[in-house]
Design a binder for these strands. Sequence first.
DNA 1: TGCCAGGCCGGGT
DNA 2: ACCCGGCATGGC
Length: 223
Amino acid sequence: MTSRTAKTLREMYDALLAAYGPQGWWPAQTATEVIIGAILTQNTAWRNVERAIENLRQAGALDWAVLRDLPFEDLAELVRPAGTFNVKTRRLKVFVNWLWERFDGSLERMFAMPLYALREELLEVSGIGRETADAILLYAGGLPTFVVDAYTARILRRHGLIDTEAGYEDIKELFESNLPADTPMFNEYHALLVHVGKTHCRPRPRCSACPLERFPHDVETAD
DNA sequence: TGCCAGGCCGGGT
DNA sequence: ACCCGGCATGGC
């Protein structure tokens, strides 16, 4: 029953892991930091997120109660280096208020929910889209959901595993229906895709020699 | 110097 | 159901 796609996805994972080794994601020390980083990194270079996280750390604001009580303008100043700081400050505020209303401020209670029920609820929170929700579930909650991002889509498209119309849920389904629901592997796979996406599979110039070179790839189509 | 970065929302068709 | 402008900093 192992389809060709399943075999390819597994082999791509093996190739990436062999080339780069474990990535040790998410680059954060606590679940709280993961969630904050997941919101701050939306359409933003991680380097800029690190500055904002460092600001928050210095201010003692990597803490939900502190974040909840911090005035909007003060929080926005700390978030500034991450870009779109008014938007992100609002999203952090919306999330923390929801966390209190829904789970009395407890991440432990939140993550005690069944995976897909929690995913649906997270998607109702303004500012939490699919990728952010999945990153929170996987990297902060340790729940086996696959995270898709722009790198993932581009890599799979170039290697002919999805077509240009494939949306987020299509791509997520491709992984989840062809691989075991294994949290450590989902964790590592996404991190490896981001790494190869940053270092080789660039928008332009076209991807250069990389660990996935032996897999059939399209070097002409846009993006 | 413009393009890009680990998206998402809201309004308009 | 799509499509698109807005959000904004910092690196290359």
